[in-house]
Design a protein around this nucleic acid. Sequence first.
DNA 1: ACACGATGTATTCATTGAATGAATAGTTCG
DNA 2: CGAACTATTCATTCAATGAATACATCGTGT
Lengths: 174, 174
Amino acid sequence: MSTGHVLLGLLVERPKHGYELKKEHDHRLPGSRPLAYGQVYATLQRLERDGWAEVAETLQEGGPERTVYAITDEGKAELDGWLERLEPPAPHVASPLFARVVVATLAGGGADGYLLRQRAAHLARMRELTLRKADGTPAQVLAADYALQHLDADLRWIETAIARLADLKEEIDA
Amino acid sequence: MSTGHVLLGLLVERPKHGYELKKEHDHRLPGSRPLAYGQVYATLQRLERDGWAEVAETLQEGGPERTVYAITDEGKAELDGWLERLEPPAPHVASPLFARVVVATLAGGGADGYLLRQRAAHLARMRELTLRKADGTPAQVLAADYALQHLDADLRWIETAIARLADLKEEIDA
DNA sequence: ACACGATGTATTCATTGAATGAATAGTTCG
DNA sequence: CGAACTATTCATTCAATGAATACATCGTGT
């Protein structure tokens, strides 16, 4: 429940309500997919159910009702645990790129064309990100760097994949 | 529906039933998370609902019933489209690593320790994968290369993140 | 001065997809 | 007889989207 832990993290500062959490999440984690409101409130309910967050107060002072959530002691302990825990380093690599290459080869189409087009798209995206880095906040720069490093990793892999497509085809035909 | 497209790809060769598809998937896409049976059958139902696959025959020749699915013409067209489509190059980077660094900084703990431990874990995992590459099939080697490139990307990012933690903290405190 | 629409705040709901784990049931083989 | 393999189903949870609801504020034109 990665989203839940991030929300817990945002609650450490002070109690907040759903709308605020969504805004903060999108602001603090630029580059990550913006949270849908539905997901925020669903996640908050799970946090409450598990005792990691609780309703601090319900405000009705002009405007819609706002339900403010606070992190609990249990939630703080859980968050600490999450921060200590090492990210299991990619036990399973979910790679749409790899999947397509295998499927294209299986389906007989050949993956060369796809890989070449993908390489071009990656290069374009990297140029775009590099430009955007210039005027970003530190968080935006870090997020962009993360994306850039992984796009570069894809590019390197694409090169070796192109070179080894023949081997893959042989294995599949066998 | 990436899983669905992969299953479609496996059906191009010839009609297959769920159990066989699960085995083939896990075999053809080493390194990816093994499919749960439940997911295979649920996905097949969606493929059928969308007209991309259909029940070819139901066998009851000694042994449990087997429902064999075949790809339809519509499914072939969809698969071609999927293979043509470029992977939207990381519009949103879902990065547990980045998320933890931000949350650790927000929560006041500081992310240095976490990054150092994560670096060590990555290095260990890379050594392990490199060893396993030696005696792998071409598909396994490609999958391992994909993982290795991305672990290396993480490592590079970790270095720059360590160097820029102070900037991030400053942004958050402001 | 005030009706009106746009914008912003805050939450809920219905639905779908992804994923897990356990349960079921028959077959083969030692 | 029991263990292992083949094949499918079910119950449940989490993740995620998109639309709907509802109230408040604020600027604009008449």
